[in-house]
Simulated assay, not measured.
Amino acid sequence: MAVLDTLMSNSKIARATHRIYAYRTYVTKNGKNLPLNDCADDGETGAGIKLQHLLQIMKIDNVMLVVTRWYGGVHLGADRFRHIQNKARQAITESGFWK
């Protein structure tokens, strides 16, 4: 949540209509690495879990992925999920987390 709070200090991100996120990491408890992951849609029902799945299939760990979306007056329907996924994949690739 500290990461999201920091991102929200950016006025452009704070003004976005939707802030969709997912993360995957691990915590050590009793000598075992346990998965810790979560996601949120922020009104884009199902988008967070799609980002979570993307991190899982790309085997990206210790990363929080945040995609912001602004509503521009045009209903995109199901195409919005394709756009969200494409931007998420682009961010992962360009940041060097996946080769």
Rank of each mutant, 00 (worst) to 15 (best):
R82E: 07
I49H: 14
D38K: 13
G72E: 06
T45H: 13
L55T: 00
R89L: 09
G31R: 12
H83A: 07
N86L: 09
N37M: 12
T28M: 07
R80C: 10
M64G: 00
N10Y: 11
M1G: 10
E44R: 02
Q85L: 05
M1Y: 15
I20A: 08
R80A: 08
T25E: 01
A40I: 01
I60D: 02
R82N: 11
Q90H: 12
D38S: 12
Y23P: 00
N86E: 05
Q85P: 00
L7S: 10
T68P: 00
G77F: 14
R24L: 00
K29G: 08
T28R: 14
I84V: 06
A91Q: 11
D79T: 13
D41F: 04
R89W: 09
Q52K: 10
R24Q: 06
G43Q: 03
L55F: 05
D5E: 14
I13C: 03
V27C: 08
N30V: 05
M1F: 14
S95Q: 12
L55E: 02
D42F: 00
Q56W: 10
D38G: 10
I49P: 00
V67K: 03
L55W: 01
F81E: 02
R89D: 06
F97R: 09
L7A: 09
N33M: 12
A91H: 04
H53V: 07
K12Y: 15
A40S: 15
S95K: 14
R19D: 04
W98K: 14
A88H: 03
R19H: 06
I92T: 01
R15S: 15
I60A: 01
P35E: 01
T6C: 12
H83P: 02
T45C: 07
V66C: 06
L36Y: 15
A88I: 00
Q85R: 08
I49G: 04
D61I: 07
D61N: 13
N86C: 06
Q52A: 12
H83W: 04
T68Q: 02
C39W: 05
R24K: 08
T17C: 03
K99N: 11
L76Q: 03
V67C: 06
T28Y: 15
M1Q: 12
R24H: 09
G96R: 11
S9Y: 15
T17R: 01
T45V: 06
G73I: 04
K32Y: 09
G77R: 12
I57N: 07
G48T: 00
K29S: 11
R80E: 07
I92A: 04
N62W: 11
M8I: 05
Q56F: 12
Q85K: 08
V66I: 03
S9N: 15
N37L: 11
A47K: 10
T45D: 08
Y23F: 06
T6P: 09
N37D: 07
V3M: 13
K29L: 07
M64Q: 04
L54C: 02
V3Y: 15
G96E: 07
T17M: 04
A78W: 14
S9E: 15
T6K: 15
C39L: 05
A78V: 13
R24W: 04
Q85I: 02
G31I: 01
I57Y: 09
G43Y: 08
